[in-house]
Structures are given as C-alpha cells and as structure tokens.
Design a protein around this nucleic acid. Structure first.
Length: 228
DNA sequence: AAATTACTCAACCGCGGGACT
DNA sequence: CAGTCCCGCGGTTGAGTAATT
C-alpha cells in the first residue's frame, strides 16, 4: 500500500506556483481522478495523494477562501455538535469550504472556544493532550521531544481505544429501543460520543432545519421524518 | 532590535474501504 | 477468495508568521 509514494523521488513540502499551474492545467485537461498517474503524466514529482489534496483544498474551482462568516461558524459548531469530527460531512454543507479548512478552523478557533465554555465535551484524545499541557489551548506546543514521541507509534488502535461511551453505545439496542430526541440536541450528542449511523441523516436534517432549512436530499428528510 | 512564544494553516501520514484483477 | 491499487478521511506535523517579552 502506498508503495509508489514511498519513493525518494517524490517531492514534498509546499507547492510552488508553477507546480500549481501544471496541476491545474492537467486536471482541467484530463479531469479529476487517477491521481496516481498525475505526477507521472504531468511531470510533477509529487505523490498522487499530494496532487489530489492540493487540487481539492486549493486549486479546485469555487473554493472559498478567507474568513468564515458568522453563519458558517454557527453551522460548523452545530454540525460538529451533531456529527462529531466528520469533517468531510460538515464541509459538504459549507459550499466552497474543504474538510481540511473546516478541520483547521475548528481546531484553531472553535475548539479553543468550546473548551473554554464546555467542560464535558472534550474528546478523549484532547483530554490526553490537556493533561499533558494543562492550558485551554489544544493546539500543539513547542515541546519537540514530546512531539516526536507522540508521532512515533501513532496508531489507529490508540485512537479507537474503548472508552466508556463506546461501551454504552454498544449496549444500545436500536432495533427495539428507538432513540429519543430531546429538544436540546446537546443532550443527545457530545464530542465524546461515537457516530451512530441511524442518527446521521437525522442529525443533518435537524442541524440544517434549525439553520434556516436550506436544500437537502429528499431521502434524508424522508428518512429523518420517518423516524420521528 | 533580538529572542522567545503562540498561532495558523498547508501538507503529510496511516488507515479503512471499495474496485478491480 | 485473496491480493493489489486507488481514493478519501481524519489526525497530526511543522514551516511561516504574528505577537509578546
């Protein structure tokens, strides 16, 4: 897996304007996809993933850059409360914004803010960080030794370590026990809760409805209302 | 003015999953 | 069915820069 990108000839680091032009021209000529071949065929010495990421987060048409509007902030907060860290889902509701941008924005602006006001919705990973660096700022600190140790042995198992809420979720029987929907959705979801597929479409529906009810797929609304 | 600290965000990495052979 | 390839996601890093001392 990812063998091709392990080659030493693959260039890394910030993209230069001329590389952007090459990639943009190539994608506009050949379309998106088949990223693995892009570097080879376009002459870029970049990995497929890097090309895809650059296109998706920066070069793609209709990318909206700059400050988040209040509406966007509000929607991010609302959707994050409901969906958790599913940035691509959240970004999908924000025209012109990318998952990376939403994720960065959350981590740098909103997470900081919420950690100041909320005490019960710190995700398990951040808990660890906060214990390590007892400030309200969850972003990285310049303690490179810790950083190195942190980056080593970074594995999925660490992330998916069983926590009490997962155990709780596992014990929840959706077949016989449909979830209740309190008026205050904060009671239903916290950052510490797992993704519950059965609630996903409803969560989106509710989030969007209370945000002015912009367009959403019919089947989502139907699914959601069907549950209610 | 220089050094240090804090912050932002583009980019990288590892992984899971679907498609294909 | 198993192996491989590719795509996309989410977590994390680190360079660049702003703010502070």
């Amino acid at each position: 897996m990812e063998m091709k990108e392990g080659k030493s000839s693959i260039k890394k680091g910030l993209w230069k304007p001329e590389e952007d032009i090459i990639l943009k021209n190539y994608v506009e000529a050949h379309g998106e996809g088949n990223w693995a071949n892009v570097s080879e065929k376009s002459g870029l010495m970049r990995g497929g993933k890097s090309c895809r990421m650059r296109w998706k987060n920066y070069l793609r048409p209709n990318i909206k850059r700059g400050r988040m509007s209040d509406d966007e902030k509000d929607l991010i907060i609302r959707l994050h409360k409901l969906l958790g860290n599913r940035w691509s889902l959240i970004a999908g509701r924000l025209p012109g914004r990318t998952d990376n941008e939403v994720k960065n924005y959350w981590n740098t602006h909103l997470n900081k803010r919420s950690s100041q006001t909320k005490t019960t919705t710190i995700c398990s990973k951040n808990k660890k960080k906060l214990q390590q660096f007892p400030t309200s700022q969850p972003t990285r600190c310049k303690i490179s030794e810790n950083d190195d140790k942190r980056s080593q042995g970074r594995k999925r198992e660490d992330i998916t370590a069983v926590s009490p809420w997962i155990e709780h979720a596992r014990s929840f029987n959706f077949d016989t026990e449909p979830p209740l929907f309190p008026a205050n959705d904060a009671l239903l979801f916290t950052d510490d809760e797992p993704f519950m597929p059965i609630l996903d479409s409803l969560a989106l529906y509710e989030a969007l409805q209370s945000n002015g009810g912009e367009e959403y797929p019919q089947e989502v609304a139907g699914h959601a209302t069907g549950l209610c």
